[in-house]
Design a protein around this nucleic acid. Structure first.
Length: 881
RNA sequence: GCGGACGUGGCGAAAUGGUAGACGCAAGGGACUUAAAAUCCCUUGGCCGUAAGGCUGUGUGGGUUCGAGUCCCACCGUCCGCACCA
C-alpha cells in the first residue's frame, strides 16, 4: 500500500480521463428500467462558474452517483441557458458578437465543470441559443397559438426611453431603468402573451400534490396565483349623470356582506367609464393624467396619498333604489384586477377608510366585533376587518359575515336586471398572463409575419427555424433586428404580399428554460421538440435542485409550459418536477480597507491569536476591517474562485466542504479553515484506507463463517454507517452523511489502533477489507476521484479491476444493526438518573424489575411503591415516584 | 400591512415527543521532532465540588404530557416572500 500523500491534481485528471474514455456516465435511451432523472438548474454562460454552481452541482452529482449505484438508469444532463441581455451588453461594451461571446463562455465553463468530476452525460448537452433547440420552441409557439394559448394584446409595459426597450418589473428599480437610470414610462404596446391564466386553477390545485416540494415554494406560488372568491355585482347608474347614458357599473367584491356600509364607488383611472367621463370634464381628464404620471414603483405606491375625483355620476344601491352613491375616480384602483371598479365600505377596509376620511364621506360600521355594544361601536381611524355580527344591515342583522355574504349572493343572483342577474359569484386571480415579447436581439425570434392584408400570419413550419441574422450592429440603441437592413422584410406566406414584415421581438429567455428538461430526454430528435416514448419514459424530473430565487418565475412558467405541451401533444404529463430542492447560498466574510474599498479574500492575510482574529492587506500590511458574512458577490469582492480552490486542493476537497458544514437548504459559509479541514480529511482517508487495506490483504476470499467480537465490532460500525448514509442521502441530508462518514472513519481508526499487529486472525482481516471497501463506497459519491484511487489500491490485493463509480451500493446486513443487549436511560419523574442494561428481548416485567432494583431508584422511592413505570420499548424507562 | 420560516456551546451544526450538543471547526493541554510542518492523544455548555457527584441549560413567559429543542398559546428577535388585489 502506498504511504505517500494523495496527489489530487494528478489523480483527478487521471480518473476524469478514465470515466470519459469508458463513457460510463452516458445514459443510452434504451431499456430505462428503474429510471431516475436528477437535474440541477442549468447555468447562464456568464464565463466562469462560481461557488454557488459548485454547491448546486455537487449535490446533484451525489444524488446521481448514489442512484446509479442503487441500480437506477440515471439521467443527469447539463446545458446552457444561453440567450439573454449580458451577451448584448458585452457586444455593446466590447464589440464582440453575442454568439461568439456566448460560445466562448460555454467552452470555458465546460472545462471548469469537467474539472469538478461531475457524472454528467455530456452527449445530451444543449444550448438554448442553438437554432437546433429554438427551432422547436418556435414550433411550440405556433402549436400553442393554434390551441388558443397565445394571445396578442395591448398592455402597459415599463418602457426605458433611453435604451428603447421594454423592461421586466424586476429590472425597474425605484422607477428607473436598471442600466440607463432613466425614469421608466408606462407605455401601451401590443405584445405577445402566453395564456398562463387559463391554467390558474389547475396550477393552484396541483400544488397540493407536489409533496416533495418545499412548503415555502408551494406557498409562494399559491400567493402568486392569488385566488379569491367573491361576487361580481352590477350596480345600476343614474343615466342622467353618466357621460353617454351608461346605466350599469360592474364591480368585484369579496366583502358583499358589507354592502350596507357602502359610502362610495371608485373607478380606476383607466376604467372606460372614467375615460368617457373625462372626455366631457377637463378637470377629471387632468386628474387622470396626474394619476398616470405616477409610476408603479413600490416606494411611490407606499407614500402615495389616496386621491379621488368625484365624477358626479350616481350609482344606485342594489338593495335600495332610493339610496345613491357617488362615483369617484381613485388613484388606488387597479384596472387589471377584478373589473377595475369597487364599492367602498370604509368601516371595514383601511384603504377605503383613509379615502372617506380625506373626503368627509363618513362611515357606517356593519360588522360588530364580539364583545362590543352595537349601539356604541364606532369606527374612526382604524377599519375593522375581523369577524362578528352584522349590524345596521337590515335583513342581514344578526348574521355573521360569512352567512351574510351567502345571503347577499343568493338574493342578488335571483334578481334580474333585464336579462342578466344582478350579481354572479366569481373567482379572481392575481396571476397575470405572461408577456413574452422582448425588443432585443439575443433571444428566440417569434415566428410571425405581419402582413397589411392578412394581419398576423404564422411562419409556415417548413420555414422554421427563423434564425437570427449574424450581421447585426449594436451601434444604435434599440433592437438590432428592427434596424437590420433586410432581415425583417419578407413576403407574406399567405398572400405573397412583398411588403410583409417579420416580427422583430424575441421571446423572454424564461421561455427557453421552461422546457429544456424535456428536451434533455431526447436532444437528438430533429423533427419534433420531444420524442414521446422518451419524454414519457424519463419525465418527470425526480429531483430538481436549484436556488430559491426561481421559486416563482422559472418554476411556475415551467409548470405552465408542461401543461401547454401536454395540450399540444408534446408530453404526457402535467407536472415536470416531482421533487424540488432549493439549496442555500454560499456566503463569505467581507473585507474592507480603511477608505471603505472592498478587498478580495485572496488579498487578505488573517492572523489568529486565541479567539481574536486580525486581518491585514498582504500587499501593504494595512489593517483590514473584517465585515459581515454575506452572499458572495462581485460588488463586495468576497468571492472565491472555484478554479483556485480546485487548483490548490482538488475538486474532491471543494465538493466535500460544500456538503459538510451546513444543511443544504441553508446558507453555507466558505472559510479557509473549513477547506483545510476537508483537505486534511482527504489525506486521512487515504492513509486510513491504506492501513485497513494492508490488514485486509491477507484476508480469505470467502466470507468467514464465524467472526470474533473484534471483527463483529468492525462490521457493525461499517454497516451502521452504511445504513445511516443510505437513509440520509435519500433525504438529501448531506451534512449528516458527512458526519456519519467521519464517525465511521474515527471508529475504524480506533479499531486499527487496537489491533495487535503480530498475528491478525483471518476473519478480522476479512472484516477490515469489507469495512475499507464500504468506507470508500460511502464517500465515493462525494469525493469520486479519491474514491477511485482508494478503490484501485484496495483492488490490487484481490485482482479486482473495476471502477467504484460502477460498483453497486453495498447491501446492509440488518442483523448487524441489532444489539444483543440494550442500554436504556432510566428517568425518575422525567429526569435522567441512571442507566440499565438488559437483554434485547427482555420483557417489560423484567425491565421493570431491573430498574426497580437500581440503587438510585431505590433511594428515590424511599421504600414506597412507584406510582407508575413507563417503559418505551428500546427507548427509555420513566419511573413516576 | 399580510403570509411564512427560523432562534440549540466560542462557531457551523445533530437530535421518529424519549439520555440535548453526534460530527466538524476553533481553542487549550500533551506526545513525536534539534526545530517546524505533518500526524497522533487528551480536555472543552455553564455553575458548585479535590473527587464521587450535584445543580442548571435549546430566545422569553405560560400550557399539554409520565416525559418538550421538538406539540399548543402569547411575546421578543432575525431572515425571507408578497404587497393599493377590492
Amino acid at each position: 500500500m502506498p504511504t505517500e500523500r494523495y496527489n489530487a491534481a494528478e489523480a483527478e485528471a487521471r480518473w476524469q480521463k478514465v470515466w470519459d474514455e469508458r463513457g460510463i456516465f452516458a445514459t443510452p435511451n434504451q431499456n430505462l428500467g428503474k429510471k431516475y432523472y436528477v437535474l440541477e438548474m442549468f447555468p447562464y454562460p456568464s464565463g466562469r462558474i462560481h461557488m454557488g454552481h459548485v454547491r448546486n452541482y455537487t449535490m446533484g452529482d451525489v444524488v446521481a452517483r448514489v442512484k446509479r449505484a442503487r441500480g437506477f438508469s440515471v439521467l443527469h444532463p447539463m446545458g446552457w441557458d444561453a440567450f439573454g441581455m449580458p451577451a448584448e451588453n458585452a457586444a455593446m461594451e466590447r464589440k464582440v458578437h453575442p454568439k461568439e461571446w456566448t460560445y466562448a463562455n460555454i467552452a470555458a465553463m465546460k472545462t471548469q465543470l469537467k474539472s469538478m468530476g461531475l457524472s454528467l452525460d455530456w452527449a445530451r448537452e444543449i444550448a438554448t441559443c442553438d437554432p437546433a433547440y429554438y427551432k422547436h420552441q418556435q414550433k411550440m409557439f405556433l402549436d400553442f397559438w393554434r390551441a388558443g394559448l397565445v394571445e396578442r394584446k395591448k398592455s402597459k409595459v415599463n418602457w426605458d426611453p433611453v435604451d428603447n426597450t421594454v423592461l421586466a418589473n424586476e429590472q425597474v428599480i425605484d422607477g428607473r431603468g436598471w442600466r440607463s437610470g432613466a425614469v421608466v414610462e408606462q407605455r401601451e404596446l401590443t405584445q405577445w402573451f402566453f395564456a398562463i391564466t387559463k391554467f390558474a386553477q389547475p396550477l393552484l390545485e396541483a400544488l397540493d400534490g407536489l409533496e416533495r416540494w418545499p412548503e415555502k415554494v408551494r406557498l409562494m406560488q399559491k400567493n402568486w396565483i392569488g385566488r379569491s372568491e367573491g361576487l361580481l355585482v352590477r350596480f345600476a347608474l343614474d343615466p342622467q349623470t353618466t357621460p353617454n347614458g351608461e346605466s350599469e357599473l360592474e364591480i368585484f367584491t369579496t366583502r358583499s356582506d358589507t354592502l350596507f356600509g357602502a359610502r362610495f364607488m371608485a373607478l380606476s383611472p383607466d376604467h372606460p367609464l372614467a375615460q368617457a367621463a373625462a372626455q366631457k370634464n377637463p378637470a377629471l381628464a387632468a386628474f387622470i393624467a396626474e394619476c398616470k404620471r405616477h409610476g408603479t414603483a413600490q416606494e411611490i405606491i407606499d407614500k402615495a396619498e389616496k386621491l379621488g375625483f368625484d365624477t358626479g355620476i350616481k350609482a344606485v344601491h342594489p338593495f335600495d333604489p332610493n339610496w345613491t352613491l357617488p362615483v369617484y375616480v381613485a388613484n388606488f384602483i387597479l384596472m387589471d384586477y377584478g373589473t377595475g371598479a369597487i364599492f367602498g365600505c370604509p368601516a371595514h377596509d383601511q384603504r377605503d377608510l383613509d379615502f372617506v376620511n380625506k373626503y368627509n364621506l363618513g362611515n357606517t360600521p356593519v360588522v360588530c366585533p364580539p364583545g362590543q355594544d352595537p349601539k356604541t361601536f364606532r369606527i374612526t381611524d382604524t377599519a375593522y376587518d375581523g369577524d362578528g355580527r352584522m349590524i345596521n344591515s337590515r335583513f342581514l342583522d344578526g348574521m355573521n359575515p360569512a352567512e351574510a355574504r351567502e345571503d347577499v349572493a343568493r338574493r342578488l343572483e335571483k334578481e334580474n336586471d333585464g336579462n342578466r342577474p344582478r350579481a354572479e359569484r366569481q373567482v379572481n386571480y392575481r396571476l397575470r398572463d405572461w408577456g413574452i415579447s422582448r425588443q432585443r436581439y439575443w433571444g428566440c425570434p417569434i415566428p410571425v409575419i405581419h402582413c397589411d392584408k392578412c394581419g398576423v400570419v404564422p411562419v409556415p413550419e417548413k420555414d422554421l427555424p427563423v434564425t437570427l441574422p449574424e450581421d447585426v450592429s449594436f451601434d444604435r440603441p434599440g433592437n438590432p433586428l428592427d434596424h437590420h437592413p433586410t432581415w425583417k422584410h419578407v413576403a407574406c406566406p399567405q398572400c405573397g404580399n412583398k411588403n410583409a414584415r417579420r416580427e422583430t421581438d424575441t421571446m423572454d429567455t424564461f421561455v427557453d428554460s421552461s422546457w429544456y428538461f424535456e428536451r434533455f430526454t431526447d436532444p437528438w430528435i430533429k423533427t419534433a421538440p420531444t420524442e414521446r416514448p422518451m419524454v414519457d419514459g424519463w419525465m418527470p424530473v425526480d429531483q430538481y435542485i436549484g436556488g430559491i430565487e426561481h421559486a416563482i418565475l422559472h418554476l411556475l412558467y415551467s409548470r405552465f409550459f408542461t401543461r401547454a405541451m401536454k395540450e399540444t401533444g408534446h408530453v404526457g404529463l402535467d407536472e415536470p418536477f416531482a421533487g424540488l430542492f432549493t439549496q442555500g447560498m454560499v456566503v463569505h466574510e467581507t473585507f474592507r480597507r480603511q477608505n471603505g474599498e472592498w478587498v478580495a479574500p485572496a488579498e487578505v492575510k488573517i492572523e489568529t491569536n486565541g479567539d481574536a482574529r486580525r486581518a491585514t492587506l498582504i500587499a501593504t500590511g494595512e489593517a483590514i476591517e473584517i465585515g459581515p458574512i454575506e452572499k458572495m458577490s462581485k460588488s463586495k469582492r468576497n468571492t472565491v474562485d472555484p478554479d483556485d480552490i480546485i487548483g490548490e486542493y482538488g475538486a474532491d476537497v471543494a465538493r466535500w466542504f460544500m456538503l459538510s458544514d451546513s444543511p443544504p437548504e441553508r446558507d453555507v459559509e466558505w472559510t479557509e479553515r473549513g477547506v483545510q479541514g476537508a483537505a486534511r480529511f482527504v489525506q486521512r482517508l487515504w492513509r486510513l484506507v491504506g492501513e485497513a487495506g494492508d490488514i485486509g490483504r491477507g484476508a480469505p476470499a470467502a466470507r468467514p463463517a464465524q467472526f470474533s467480537p473484534a471483527a463483529i465490532a468492525v462490521r457493525k460500525a461499517a454497516h451502521k454507517a452504511l445504513a445511516a448514509v443510505g437513509d440520509d442521502v435519500e433525504k438529501l441530508h448531506f451534512n449528516v452523511c458527512v458526519a456519519h462518514i467521519y464517525e465511521f472513519a474515527n471508529s475504524l481508526s480506533a479499531a486499527i489502533g487496537d489491533i495487535d499487529s503480530g498475528d491478525i486472525a483471518p476473519d478480522l482481516r476479512w472484516a477490515m477489507r469489507e469495512a475499507a471497501e464500504i468506507l470508500v463506497q460511502l464517500f465515493a459519491p462525494m469525493m469520486p476521484h479519491l474514491a477511485e484511487e482508494c478503490w484501485a489500491a484496495l483492488g490490487q490485493s484481490t485482482g479486482r479491476d473495476t471502477l467504484v463509480a460502477q460498483s453497486p451500493w453495498p447491501n446492509v446486513e440488518r442483523e448487524l444493526l441489532i444489539e444483543d443487549t440494550i442500554t436504556l436511560p432510566v428517568q425518575i419523574n422525567g429526569k435522567k438518573r441512571a442507566e440499565v442494561t438488559v437483554p434485547r428481548d427482555a420483557s417489560n416485567a423484567e425491565i421493570e424489575a431491573a430498574v426497580l432494583a437500581l440503587d438510585t431508584v431505590q433511594k428515590a422511592l424511599d421504600g414506597k411503591k412507584p406510582k407508575k413505570v413507563i417503559i418505551v420499548p428500546k427507548r427509555i424507562v420513566n419511573v413516576v415516584a
